[in-house]
Design a protein around this nucleic acid. Sequence first.
DNA 1: CTTGATTGTTATGTCACACAACATTATAAC
DNA 2: GTTATAATGTTGTGTGACATAACAATCAAG
Lengths: 154, 154
Amino acid sequence: MAAKPTSAARLAAQQPASILDSLVGYRLRRASNRMLSDFSATMAPLALRPVLFAMLEVVRGNPGIIQMGLGTELGIQRANLVPLINELAARDLIERRAAPHDRRAMALFLTPAGEVLLEQADAMVREHEERMLAGLTRGERDKLLELLAKIAAD
Amino acid sequence: MAAKPTSAARLAAQQPASILDSLVGYRLRRASNRMLSDFSATMAPLALRPVLFAMLEVVRGNPGIIQMGLGTELGIQRANLVPLINELAARDLIERRAAPHDRRAMALFLTPAGEVLLEQADAMVREHEERMLAGLTRGERDKLLELLAKIAAD
DNA sequence: CTTGATTGTTATGTCACACAACATTATAAC
DNA sequence: GTTATAATGTTGTGTGACATAACAATCAAG
């Protein structure tokens, strides 16, 4: 007997797999929550939440990006971005500078401290993904990324 | 030129796809959030949030399940379950009855109104999934479900 | 019978969103 | 050039899905 209840085991135990198990939305949420909680645990030493990490990545990849652009890229509304940027700025990980040619906008840059922290984070994230996806082959992971990108595409 | 920025278009536009795009956790969260928001919009007429829907499904599939069991099945802690069950009970969709053989536990059942609402919800959820997964073939959807189930398996 | 675990409950806090309103600045229309 | 409209950052407020700790009642094991 398997230690964990498989579909077969459930049928045998008269615990019919619920309709939920066939819903992509449900399984997505469960998988995402598991990844999120492990991510947070992994990054606890750096005190980097998933959103903050994503923001740093985008800023590194697009130095001088304005807040609006960062929000669009990550699907975060500009109102919600403000306290997050404040947090990163207060920790001296990013810097707000006046944007050229637009006095409304603020251009964002990583500080040296931000660069250093983000490199540490990268390593920890790679390790985190490796651990969580240990059950999937390289090909399966690529396939998964491809399929996820197809869901009501951006 | 494509209407949506592909990886190729990004390179051409000097917007390098960030590391984020290769992270399963990130893409999972994005896809899940999109599904969640469409789910909520779809179910607005029934005022059924994703969690509430999931709870009703499990109760229907397991009549008399106790609160603890429901929480375990859905990965919700019993403390957080209480107000949710209160909400469903207040709307006369589920019923709490004394559990046989255990005077601590409460057995859960769908009310007739709950049965009716859940059937309407089922139809709307099928439609919602169809809309969001229109870009994926049957085979791809099954593959996606299979891969999601493999992520740091329950 | 006593000790420890389980169940439901209350209370509290955090995080990732959503939406509305506002001042400042850009842009477009005229 | 002036005026109307849009964009940007900001503040404030609300919500939904989590987490954790503590408690009373009940169960189960020694």
